[in-house]
Design a protein around this nucleic acid. Structure first.
Lengths: 260, 260
DNA sequence: ACCTGAACACCGTTCAAGT
DNA sequence: ACCTGAACACCGTTCAAGT
């Protein structure tokens, strides 16, 4: 996370300071740049080069513009990364039942889906976005994460968990178990996927390469044994099974402790 | 994680390359620097300034030495951070029952502690080290994490989970649920603790300040309601309860699905 | 209103040189 | 064997200036 400012950092968030220059009053003709284009280019660059490959200067080059032009639209690099973060969170599809104000939920279909199904869907979406954008976990760990899309996601997660029947004072805890798990899982999975992309290897190839690089170390004997027991044909398959069953465990725990 | 090398990175780990210069053959008198001193200073700097405040040049200054001296002992900044990472992992106290080779476990006390108690201890230790060293989560997400202490921790975690009675092919999944949860939890808790230290505020002070900065945003209404329901007098108390109950949920899930 | 250029105070790391 | 100094190719950001 060496991405922040170098000093003690006053640490304001984009979402806590008024936006810069989105007010193009009158009808001047818009020129090359704007917020949308900048954030899109930022995400493209982050996807391609990772967080450490991203710089304001690289971004400016990508946009065919001088290094400082971007600063007209964005206060700092940190603010820009927060915008990218929230844009990525916006890619998460929310279950229809869990979105919008309460009144609209009165009109929801007579057969609302099971909370467990909704939770699994939301967790899968969250996981996927972190694998697709492997820079996301680092930013999620770095910033306040109170952009509109992040808040929408949190509220959806909360709404779903409410349907579990868990008492109100246990909801934050259960949310924490599920989504911190997915966050951690997505972090390592995303990193692995990024390393594969960078090395031009499939997940299986990189996995076996990594395994063989520690083949002679007996401290790994226990891990190897248990990884073998886990079975599965491909790395992806093993990971999917781990993910699915871990969620099953969490759900089973919630159901078990729901009524004491 | 803008901490890596700028290019595509060949990405060798310290643990996969022979060490630099720890072989001071003969009995030359040792001079100022050595691995231990360097890693200790690194951790001190990281604790004080965070990952973004750490640089090879700041470290050298701290050691009263020129910028390039450190490179005699350490190949790159990344390698040094991997060493700091593993040193931090070494602060985790492992349950006596879960450490060492199998034979020594035959001699373990007649009354080995419950696996749930051991799991709770290990999780608490892991959480604590991330709060103490708030730079740790970022590094854990960045590097391979196959240093001796990290492997020792993994093996201990595995040994404990084995005692749960879960079938072998479900162990990785359960480990993932528990420790990825703790990782995610520790990440945000560590960041919050670091921000408090930087701002010179208590956790409660910063918490209420953050809350009031979004007081007028109704998107947060639901979160506020549920945070209120959670109760607790201090932020630390709420967090401890969340953590403890989340682990209870995980454990209950494991027990529920243990025998199908 | 929008963009540029030069400059400042930093980075990690290489490399030739000192002792 | 260990440490230095100068240099290279980068950073984020400020600030005065252009159109």
């Amino acid at each position: 996370m060496a991405t922040g400012s170098r000093t003690v950092r006053p640490r304001s968030s984009v979402w806590l300071s008024e936006r810069k220059a989105p007010k193009r009053k009158g009808d001047q003709q818009p020129v090359g740049l704007d917020h949308v284009k900048i954030v899109a280019a930022t995400m493209r660059l982050l996807d391609a080069e990772g967080l450490s490959g991203f710089s304001m200067r690289r971004l400016a080059a990508e946009l065919g513009v001088t290094a400082m032009s971007v600063y007209w639209y964005v206060e700092t690099k940190d603010h820009l990364l927060e915008l990218a973060l929230d844009a990525a969170m916006g890619e998460i599809a929310l279950p229809a039942e869990a979105v919008g104000p309460v009144e609209s939920q009165e009109h929801s279909p007579a057969e609302p889906r099971d909370w467990r199904e909704q939770l699994r869907q939301l967790a899968a979406e969250y996981r996927q976005v972190m694998v697709r954008h492997s820079w996301l976990p680092a930013l999620l760990g770095e910033y306040l994460n109170i952009g509109p899309n992040a808040v929408g996601f949190s509220n959806a997660a909360l709404a779903v968990m409410r349907n579990s029947g868990l008492p109100d004072d246990k909801i934050t805890s259960a949310l924490s178990l599920v989504y911190q798990f997915v966050y951690g899982f997505g972090t390592i999975e995303g990193r692995f996927a990024a390393r594969c992309r960078a090395a031009g290897l499939t997940q299986d190839e990189l996995f076996h390469e990594t395994m063989s690089s520690v083949a002679d170390r007996m401290e790994f004997d226990e891990s190897r044994k248990i990884m073998k027991a886990r079975g599965g044909n491909t790395v992806e398959e093993m990971r999917d099974r781990d993910f699915t069953f871990a969620l099953d465990l969490a759900i089973a725990g919630i159901e078990a402790l729901r009524d004491r």
